[in-house]
Amino acid sequence: MNLIDLATAAFAESSASADIDAAEQAAEAEARFLKYARGCVRKTLDEAAADLLDWQYIPADRLPDQIEEARALLTPGRLEYLRYRVNHSADAEYLDLVQPCRACDNDGISPVTSLVHLGQLLNEEDKPHDQDTDAQEPGPLDAVDAAERRAAVVAALALRLLAQHPDADLTVDTVAVFGHDDGDGSAQLRLKAADLNALRLVAAAMGRNVATKVSGTHPGMVFEHGDVIFTVDGTEVQLRAHTRLPDDEAAAWLAQQDQPEAAAGGDV
């Protein structure tokens, strides 16, 4: 064996050892994440529910950046599954029920807050898309039932947002729930954040950008307003906040607003 053979063999041995170490570390990380998933289910549902689920780790190349995920079928032979996700960029965890649609590519995704809530979601399973609902007369209370179901979803969503972003000091501003006699429902949820910095952190966790504008009439009363709108499981969510500009920034902004008028006056 010459020096080239010796060096090549040493490199191959080192590479094989590194691959083994990487595989062991990945397996340990996967096992640790599945342990977190089971712990989340024990905390959210109960011990018995956690023991009934077989979690599968989802490879990172199938997920967005900074997202880690595991899934567990509710029972063999059905499509519904629980999804445990962690957004590492926002240090937030999610437990959702995912209900794939047999007739289209859209999945119903609902946050799960308790074992009772999970049972409620499963009891609200959508009718097949190919069912002829136009031929059926709506019941006298179908709109009320739809509003009640949607209100429960909105309440769970609001609780989840507040729990996931405690530092944002979120408060619910308004809730509008609509029930329709076709059995469907919709809702609007408006929340306020402590300030624009808090709003931007929440929006970033949701993968959204904040739209801002400045308004005011004199120093001390100039504010930057921001809002972001997105939809979660049929609920339109609007997050908003405002921050008062420092006096120097407010004065500069007010001066800029006066420039067109000043220029117009100089031309006369």
Rank of each mutant, 00 (worst) to 15 (best):
I4E: 11
D5E: 15
L6W: 10
L6S: 10
A7P: 05
A9W: 04
E13S: 11
E13Q: 14
S14Q: 09
A16W: 13
S17T: 12
I20E: 15
D21V: 14
A22W: 10
A23T: 10
A26E: 14
A29I: 05
E30H: 07
A37N: 09
R38F: 07
G39Y: 13
V41L: 03
K43F: 01
E47W: 05
E47G: 00
A48H: 09
A49V: 02
L52W: 11
L53N: 12
W55R: 13
P59M: 11
A60L: 12
A60K: 15
R62C: 14
R62H: 15
R62D: 13
L63Q: 07
Q66Y: 15
I67L: 15
I67A: 13
A70W: 05
A70D: 05
R71P: 10
A72K: 02
L73S: 08
L74A: 02
L74K: 03
R78C: 05
R78V: 13
E80R: 07
R83H: 01
R83G: 03
R83E: 10
R85C: 04
R85V: 07
R85I: 02
E93K: 13
Y94H: 08
L97R: 03
V98Y: 03
R102Q: 12
A103P: 14
G108N: 06
T113K: 03
V116F: 15
G119D: 05
L122Y: 00
L122P: 00
E124P: 00
E125C: 00
D126H: 01
H129W: 02
Q131F: 04
T133G: 00
E137A: 07
G139C: 00
L141S: 00
V144C: 01
A146T: 00
R149G: 04
A152D: 06
V153R: 03
L161V: 04
P166N: 03
D169L: 11
V172D: 03
T174M: 11
A176W: 04
H180W: 03
D181E: 08
G183S: 02
A193Y: 09
A193Q: 09
D195I: 07
L196Q: 11
G207W: 07
G207A: 05
H218E: 11
G220Y: 08
V222C: 04
F230A: 14
T231N: 14
V232F: 12
V237E: 02
L239N: 02
R240P: 01
A241C: 04
A241P: 07
T243H: 10
R244N: 09
P246K: 05
D248Q: 07
E249G: 06
A250S: 05
A252M: 08
W253R: 01
W253F: 09
L254C: 05
A255S: 10
Q257R: 13
Q257D: 14
Q257A: 10
A262M: 12
G265F: 11
G266E: 05
D267R: 09
